[in-house]
Design a protein around this nucleic acid. Structure first.
Lengths: 137, 137
DNA sequence: ATGGGTGCAAATAATTTGCAGGTAA
DNA sequence: TTACCTGCAAATTATTTGCACCCAT
């Protein structure tokens, strides 16, 4: 058995910058957006590093990753460290974190009915938020 | 108001080939796979056409599109013409179509609670199917 | 000292677009 | 005839990798 190698993470300026930006951002943004915004602020961080960092953070469960429409991945710091889903406005991308005990139970049950185990699921809700409805029907 | 232009579709050999292949295929396959398989069979269809065709078919609701892991889109002809979800084996990608009245209701309710309307959702379940569990735990 | 981290440039990979013919209706 | 359709090549776009150097531990 390969024991999980104890991997110590270095606390670098770049890691901190990415995390701080995501912590201060309420909505989902792409890796390229993270990079652009940090550069605007004078950071010298590289795009490659941003990609690597968000990947690490997503794997560690410190940020959420979702695909909004086009094949671009978007990230967001999650308040709730637990498993949850998102309700995203399709216009402004305003996001609400939601938990769905009902969905969790449902997915496990459906899986069982068909002989599938270790059920995982991706659930994202898209809708038009109150503000956007006012502006443009 | 721009009236929806009446767009008549041409019935071409290529369109038919793609649809027939998908009709004969039980699992999700990518546009490139569709192209490769048709070529193997002697078709001269171009990759571009495949991409354009699956996009049209997906928009028309004639096939389902999901993203399996990597940023590659996969397609599958759906039996059930109605809205449904999938339970996909993460090893062999064997797929079961499922309908979730519970999820439909849940998503609409959650949306309403937060002032969101016209709720859409993406729900995909991933698990390990019976056969794959036997082979490799 | 060491192994993780960084960034540039180049490489991949998926998908789209320009354009010059075809062809279904 | 008139759009729509096709396919090649080239362009885009998102993301990854090779590599030499840097720095947190």
């Amino acid at each position: 058995m390969a024991r999980p190698v104890e991997r110590r993470r270095h606390r670098t300026r770049q890691r901190r910058e990415v995390l701080e930006l995501l912590a201060a951002t309420d909505e989902f943004i792409s890796a390229r957006q993270v990079h652009a915004r940090l550069r605007e602020r004078g950071s010298t961080i590289g795009l490659t590093t941003v990609y690597r960092t968000v990947q690490v953070l997503a794997d560690a469960g410190e940020i959420d990753a979702v695909r909004l429409g086009s094949g671009e991945q978007h990230y967001r710091r999650c308040r709730d460290g637990h498993h949850h889903h998102h309700l995203i406005c399709r216009h402004c991308f305003r996001t609400v974190e939601i938990t769905g005990p009902a969905v969790e139970a449902w997915s496990r049950q459906i899986g069982g009915e068909h002989g599938y185990t270790d059920i995982n699921h991706t659930v994202e809700l898209f809708g038009t938020c109150n503000d956007c409805r006012q502006v443009a029907g």
